[in-house]
């Protein structure tokens, strides 16, 4: 009977540990203890976050992108791979800016197929994008398990401001278990890890947040007298969708990246640059009505207004 309280104590400690690892709210008793600790010891228990400087997004992210865990950035097709890579690198530039001593490099773990399809990171381009090519390491593993090992080792070594792991599609060997493992490693090491899923589907994973990145027409260059240079291609712009977060409704917004100031700005979609309406390849009625079979189901509802003519 004497041992029972001891065992209970251990059990609670273990539960607390698990809750802390999983980032869930800790059980009530432990929470109370932590609050007391927080009052005494300040905000050291709070998870480090990276604010993006855009209020709407930061609120949805509960303060920003976690600096001690896994976040996923996804592109829906390989054509958009550079846009998603650009967003990930912009985040990395911010993380590097915030990292201590500003001397920590970035590790890019490339995927072989994606590199063949969309090119390899280019040092001068990185420089133009607001990153220091001297502090950028590029790893090209041959297989996925090597890439995963690299990511784990890099996060554990603590030598990198951020580790980017590029994955093509939804490989079978990279499922929930592996992403959970990576996420736990990142959390234990207190280092950010960005998973860059190129041309992949949405998939259940252990990440706290998942962004879908699509390209958007670039901003217009500003002349020194603050007038716009018509027809110019300025700072890159991303169409960002926050697919996974605590907030159930996906948030969609357009962000402009300023490489010189290393800062995000919310951008409005310019009127002239709106993507054209999705045109079908063969305009006109699809099929003639059949003669001797039941008609195809009629469309529900009724037309309220036609598309704008111009």
């Amino acid at each position: 009977m004497v041992q029972a309280p001891m065992a209970r104590e251990q059990l609670f400690a273990l539960r607390e540990e698990i809750a802390r690892l999983e980032g869930k709210p800790v059980p009530a008793m432990a929470a109370a203890r932590q609050e007391a600790l927080a009052e005494r010891g300040g905000r050291d228990r709070e998870k480090p976050r990276l604010p993006l400087g855009v209020t709407m997004l930061d609120e949805a992210l509960e303060g920003g992108v976690p600096l001690d865990g896994l976040s996923e950035i996804r592109s829906s097709c390989l054509r958009d791979a550079t846009a998603s890579a650009g967003f990930a690198l912009a985040l990395s530039a911010l993380m590097q800016k915030q990292a201590t001593a500003d001397a920590t490099p970035i590790l890019w773990i490339a995927d072989r197929v994606t590199s063949m399809e969309t090119g390899v990171p280019y040092a001068l381009g990185l420089k133009d994008f607001g990153l220091d090519p001297q502090r950028f390491l590029h790893a090209a593993p041959r297989k996925l398990d090597e890439a995963l090992w690299l990511a784990e080792t890099a996060v554990e070594s603590g030598a990198f401001a951020v580790t980017l792991l590029e994955v093509k599609g939804n490989p079978a060997h990279f499922g929930l278990t592996e992403s959970r493992r990576l996420s736990l490693r990142a959390r234990a090491a207190g280092r950010p890890l960005l998973l860059l899923r190129q041309s992949g589907e949405e998939e259940a994973s252990s990440t706290a947040f998942r962004f879908l990145v699509e390209p958007a027409p670039a901003a217009i260059r500003l002349l020194p007298d603050r007038s716009m240079l018509d027809g110019s291609i300025g700072h890159p712009v991303f169409r960002l969708t926050l697919e996974k977060s605590r907030n159930p409704a996906p948030l969609s917004l357009i962000l402009e990246w300023n490489p010189h100031d290393r800062q995000f700005f919310p951008a409005r979609e310019p009127e002239y640059a709106r993507p054209p309406l999705k045109r079908t390849a063969h305009p006109g009625s699809r099929l003639s009505a059949s003669l001797n079979r039941p008609d195809r189901p009629q469309e529900m509802g009724s037309v309220m207004a036609f598309d704008q003519a111009s």
Partner: peptide, 14 residues
Amino acid sequence: VSWSRGERPLRLFP
């Protein structure tokens, strides 16, 4: 890279 040049792409095809 001291000379003035246009912006370079983020990914380059070998």
